[in-house]
């Protein structure tokens, strides 16, 4: 028996019944004894099944294929199983599977290309890191702002103000009645922990409480201090205590509004002052 290379074309001819007995026996004995040939033949058979399912066989080949591969219930079942797998891979099966397969296809396309996956992974890593850092920063800022507002609320509670009276560091009049704004300077020493402002309230109506919004000019962030109380000592003044650390060097604006018993906010007054450190 003459040995001949077992090419894909020869295997396919064998599977389609197009080889003579001698070649057939060579291939069959190779199928039995040679594991490599065994796998190649079965892989070729799978390809043939796929070609049938893709309708790419010639009419003659299709008829031979059907008589050999679709004659029994088991063979038909195998064809259906093959079709199910192919449909899955082609995203043509049920919706859930299709969604999975499309996603897998995308993942696979990405995963198979190192020149794509490396920059994409690096970019994703950087983006995720930045996102996490940003989130942490925001959370930290939010927490520190919350802590500061709680501290300010405590500093301005009636009991604290009453228990620890102190002379004001600065008395501020609304800008509507001041000629030169930058004369209101507050010198904050390194040893200062609290500063106390007195905001002159010139409106006719007094309110049970006041609400101040303190903002450094040029900075979007602001501190909101509610439930401030007015003192009627030669006109109404509102005491506002702030932690010194909350006032870096710069120009500040305070908007102050009265809040009536129903919680309705009245017209605002505006104050400005400079912090010098």
């Amino acid at each position: 028996m003459k040995e001949r290379p077992m090419t894909d074309a020869l295997i396919r001819d064998f599977l389609l019944g197009k080889v003579d007995d001698e070649v057939r026996q060579e291939i069959e004995s190779g199928f039995i004894t040679d594991s490599e040939a065994h796998e190649r033949i079965l892989a070729a058979e799978q390809d043939l099944i796929d070609d049938y399912l893709e309708n790419t066989l010639t009419q003659a080949d299709k008829e031979f294929f059907l008589s050999n591969y679709a004659g029994t219930a088991d063979q038909k079942r195998r064809l259906r199983i093959s079709k199910t797998i192919k449909d899955w891979a082609n995203g043509e099966t049920t919706e859930d599977v299709a969604v999975t397969s499309r996603w897998n296809k995308f993942r696979h396309q990405i995963s198979l290309r190192p020149f794509v996956v490396i920059p994409v992974a690096a970019t994703l890593l950087v983006a995720i890191t930045l996102f996490v850092v940003l989130l942490n920063q925001r959370a930290q800022e939010k927490n520190s702002l919350l802590a500061l507002e709680q501290e300010i609320a405590r500093l301005n509670s009636p009991s604290t103000l009453h228990a620890a009276p102190r002379s004001p560091d600065l008395i501020l009049a609304p800008i509507s009645v001041r000629g030169v704004e930058n004369k209101n300077e507050l010198a904050v020493g390194s040893d200062s922990s609290i500063v106390e402002l007195r905001l002159v309230w010139l409106q006719k109506e007094d309110y049970p409480t006041y609400r101040a919004v303190v903002q450094q000019v040029g900075n979007e962030k602001s501190l909101v201090v509610s439930n401030l109380l007015g003192e009627s000592d030669s006109g109404t003044k509102i005491r506002l205590r702030l932690p010194a650390r909350a006032l870096p060097h710069g120009l500040y604006r305070i908007r102050l509004a009265g809040v009536d018993a129903a919680g309705v906010t009245g017209p605002e007054e505006e104050y400005t002052f400079n912090v010098r450190r």
């Binding site: 192919k86 899955w88 082609n90 599977v97 296809k105």
Partner: peptide
């Protein structure tokens, strides 16, 4: 077909993700 799809889903879970993706990619074109 639904039963075959169910079985396919079950059997796919028995494959490693690497094998699943390989076979998916291999049979994704016609």
């Amino acid at each position: 077909a639904e039963l075959r799809d169910d079985c396919l889903q079950l059997c796919l879970k028995e494959l490693s993700s690497e094998r699943r993706e390989l076979i998916l990619a291999y049979y994704s074109r016609e």
